[in-house]
Design a protein around this nucleic acid. Structure first.
Lengths: 239, 239
DNA sequence: CAGTGGTCTAGACCACAGC
DNA sequence: CTGTGGTCTAGACCACTGC
């Protein structure tokens, strides 16, 4: 048998994946078209149905096809607008924060807007953390975080200087179950931020809001970071 | 047998997935810990190994675990910084473009920067498309696209007014194989953009660059869109 | 060497589509 | 009714790890 080498280099289910991807990418199978049935593919490749299904499962996971029980598998319409972005307030594609200064750690009562944001009443306590981020001695971002105060929150100032938002929160909860949201927009700096970031000339801010919710969708943190527009670029990629 | 209802509502492999997710989320299994071996899980659940493997495959796809042949399966360290973003130059979470004006469709020779961007020589032709996006009669974005001119590019002005960047490109190639990149940053408007967008007061721009490559990593399109900062918000979410 | 995950088979029963 | 995908089994051989 020379089948062994073949199998280890390219298992049958991957051959199926590749051939079907080829057909889809070349346009010989178009979105909406039915893929050959599992039993047909099974005959065609001389493979068992489970092996065929393993290949189809991969194509489904990668967004190429979807299956309807009782009907068949069909070519998916590709997601043209989907991107993956890795965001870390301390590090982005043109800059890394090399120093951070803690401006304030405090416990406050939230105003109406913040109480709404954190879905709590205005008589609950909220931890505020205000930081400045520096690159080569230059202040490049102003960072504001709000966490509803609860039980034993381990506030260690040492850690706060360097911690990322998800890191702060993930001490208490396992971070697999966290739901995180980003909001990205641009605005001119107001007076307070001009002062903090020592901005004198014309400059735009990139503002990034982070919201973290737990499994039950209760907010457990809200964060706004104001970046000098010339010190941050976010990168996203498809697939 | 009362097992039938159970199976259809919650197949065995999903029970395994849920129980292991629970253990991971509750912290009783921590990142780096070994998951019980396939044969052990097989005994524990009274299921065949293939069924157990189906469950583990789902946990692996969702980023909970990874497997090392010959060693075992281990709990993955969660990706704290990963977000998914859906970007469409015509529609974002606070605004939708309701009209688009074609300013220019042209064929030019690229300058050095553009030639580099598109990885072509400066004597090759490039299609330029300049558009203005409107919301309720207000110009809210200035959009610039560059496509290397090749073979039969179907340039239909009608379509150009409404088409999204991936849509323009995906006519010729199947869009499954396209690699797309986003770059996001903020900057103040220059004179040209102030004129186009009729900006007179203090305002920041959100700039979004799109790069589209084919399977072989050859650039097939470059696009820059300058949004009024008060008319765009991008949203991203984890998972 | 025994234990692990990776691949694969040849069956089985099920629920569901569509004729 | 036949054909489809969804679930599941009880085996098998392989390559790899670590003792």
């Amino acid at each position: 048998m020379f089948g062994m080498d073949e199998k280890m280099i390219n298992p049958v289910y991957l051959q199926i994946v590749e051939e079907l991807k080829r057909k889809i990418n070349s346009g010989s199978l178009k979105p909406g078209d039915a893929v050959a049935s599992e039993s047909a593919l099974s005959r065609e490749y001389g493979a068992s149905r489970m092996t065929v299904r393993k290949g189809l499962a991969i194509l489904a996971k990668d967004g190429y096809i979807y299956s309807i029980p009782g009907k068949g598998s069909f070519v998916q319409k590709p997601e043209l607008n989907k991107y993956t972005i890795y965001y870390d307030e301390m590090k982005n594609s043109i800059n890394t924060v090399d120093r951070s200064r803690l401006l304030e750690v405090n416990i406050i009562m939230p105003d109406e807007k913040l109480a709404g944001e954190l879905q709590i009443t205005r008589n609950k306590n909220v931890i505020v953390i205000r930081r400045l981020f520096f690159t080569e001695g230059k202040p490049i971002a102003y960072d504001l975080k709000y966490l509803p105060y609860s039980k034993g929150m381990p506030i260690v100032e040492e850690e706060l200087e360097q911690a990322t938002f998800p890191e702060m929160v993930s001490g208490s909860v396992s971070s697999f179950s966290l739901k995180k949201e980003l909001t990205i927009y641009a605005q001119p700096p107001d007076e307070e931020i001009r002062r903090h970031l020592k901005i004198h000339d014309d400059l735009a801010l990139l503002v990034i809001e982070q919201r973290i919710h737990n499994e039950e969708n209760k907010p457990i943190g809200f964060c706004v970071t104001y970046f000098r527009g010339d010190y941050i670029k976010l990168k996203g990629r498809s697939e």
